[in-house]
Write a protein that binds this DNA or RNA. Structure first.
Length: 227
DNA sequence: GCGACAG
DNA sequence: ATCTTGTCGC
């Protein structure tokens, strides 16, 4: 039986945590935050869902931009090695996500990831982690805060407020739909906060989640029946 | 020492 | 993430 809350689970091996932390600190040195240089024509959204205790299903959906029409969708099912530990999500989900990514016939100009980018304790959320591995622009859209403080943005769509951590703005808390809980938008790699925020807003149609990640989440549920 | 804690 | 019922609103 799984644990209701992650912190109720057995404590992770401190030796492993130290190694993973060191790896994130090393990777952080290579992160580049800048306005994307290439024109955005194809955008991808990705998401993962779990099947049982140690099996994961990852999905990538490719959309045209800014039309947001689905042109491709792929998935990969495989085992997971590590448990979920706040701050180390990428080590649990990225391996399988990368295998799904390889199945795309066409590659996107940008990837929108379900989770945080630099709005992470060591500025290495899963969006940043994936961007470094693929050397591709990435941005994160998370449903919950991981680190930092913010004030609730106005209830109207388009309202936003900065997420601050250690005196630095690491994300924007963006209201993507009237009267619905806001999402946390942050740059991952080869991207900046302003661009990520603008893209998230452009992809926010009639739902809380921007189309790329919303559809990836949707297809994850659909493909789950095929595995 | 006491909370907080992406998916 | 996942387990779960009914319920409110577009």
């Amino acid at each position: 039986m799984a644990y209701y809350r992650s912190f109720d689970a057995p404590p992770p091996d401190p030796i492993i945590l130290k190694q993973l932390t060191a790896q994130q600190n090393e990777m952080q040195q290579r992160v580049v935050l800048q306005k994307p240089d290439s024109n955005l024509t194809l955008i991808a959204g990705c998401d993962s869902s779990f099947i049982g205790e140690d099996s994961i299903l990852s999905v990538f959906v490719l959309l045209t931009y800014p039309e947001l029409e689905v042109v491709e969708k792929v998935w990969h099912h495989g085992p997971v090695e590590l448990p979920y530990i706040p701050g180390f999500l990428a080590f649990r989900e990225a391996p399988n996500l990368l295998k799904a990514y390889e199945k795309l016939q066409q590659k996107p100009d940008l990837i929108m990831v379900d989770g945080h980018g630099i709005s992470h304790p060591r500025k290495l959320g899963i969006a940043t982690h994936l961007g470094l591995h693929l050397n591709k622009p990435t941005m994160g859209v998370a449903k919950k805060v991981l680190v930092g403080k913010y004030t609730e943005p106005a209830v109207t769509k388009g309202s936003l407020s900065p997420l601050v951590y250690k005196d630095e703005v690491i994300a924007n808390v963006l209201r993507t739909k009237d009267r619905v809980k806001p999402v946390f938008v942050s740059p991952g790699h080869l991207m900046d906060l302003a661009s990520a925020t603008e893209i998230a807003m452009t992809c926010a149609l009639k739902h809380k989640l921007p189309e790329p990640t919303r559809l990836a989440d949707h297809y994850a549920a659909v493909f789950k029946k095929d595995v």
